[in-house]
Design a protein around this nucleic acid. Structure first.
Length: 213
DNA sequence: ATGAGATTTTCCCTTACTTCA
DNA sequence: GTTGAAGTAAGGGAAAATCTC
């Protein structure tokens, strides 16, 4: 059955780490009990792996500093398509097709990224670390929402199936009860010795009512 | 050793903006 | 041109685990 097959599928989508601080050295332990995508890909080759606290003199790169600067002035390090409106309201950034495509591609490989991976991707896309982070958060939320809709539909079908089955079993029970009553009725009947017809209890042979023709 | 506050990272909810019918 | 719905980037708070003093 298709539904039976469906029963063995789904309802197990996990987002991996469900929150909380995870030290970098223990990052992989988190995913032990939960089926989750491998996060060990390199946006940078291994020899260029990023140390958050390390100040790269040649590139002037320090992730901690970048994040701090972003917090001080969120719009200082970004392309001009994300500058606030004159009235102070937030101007919404729209990611380009290329940016979205690469983010999607990364997401299909890894639903969460380490800070260094986020920064590497941000550099690649000319976005801020925070923007990549937020994009992944929202993308995980969207996935979860879609899965919730799928789960909901599946549970609805299960419910309908069970309701139908319940109705069928109730009907069957009713029929069986009817059969049982008839059998007990038959068990209490006696047979007329002369005409061989069934008699009600306490009915003599002389004045009997014909029950069974 | 241990306890309290700080830090880090994620999730969740919400808001604000854009796009489209 | 207006409106409402849907999509989505981003803000902010809470939770959880670890770190630091």
């Amino acid at each position: 059955m298709e539904d039976d097959k469906a029963c063995t599928l789904g309802l197990s989508l996990e987002m991996g780490n469900s929150g909380g601080y995870v030290p970098k050295k223990d990052k992989q332990k988190v995913h032990k009990s939960v089926p989750c995508l491998d996060l060990s890909f390199d946006l940078y080759p291994k020899e260029e792996a990023i140390d958050v606290n390390h100040e790269d003199e040649a590139k002037g790169f320090n992730l901690k500093r970048i994040i701090e600067e972003e917090q001080k002035d969120p719009y200082s390090m970004i392309s001009d398509n994300n500058i606030n409106n004159k009235n102070g309201s937030r101007k919404k950034l729209r990611l380009t097709k290329e940016q979205s495509a690469l983010l999607e591609e990364s997401f299909t490989l890894h639903i969460t990224l380490s800070p260094a991976q986020k920064q590497a991707l941000a550099d690649k896309l000319n976005l801020r670390h925070r923007q990549v982070e937020v994009w992944f958060q929202n993308r995980r939320a969207r996935t979860k929402l879609k899965q919730r809709v799928v789960d909901c539909e599946f549970l609805k079908k299960c419910c309908e199936k069970l309701t139908h089955e319940n109705f069928r079993l109730k009907k069957e029970l009713q029929e069986l009860r009817g059969v049982k009553v008839n059998i007990s009725k038959i068990a209490t009947l006696t047979t007329c010795s002369s005409c061989k017809k069934l008699l009600k209890p306490n009915e003599g042979n002389n004045s009997h009512t014909k029950i069974v023709e």
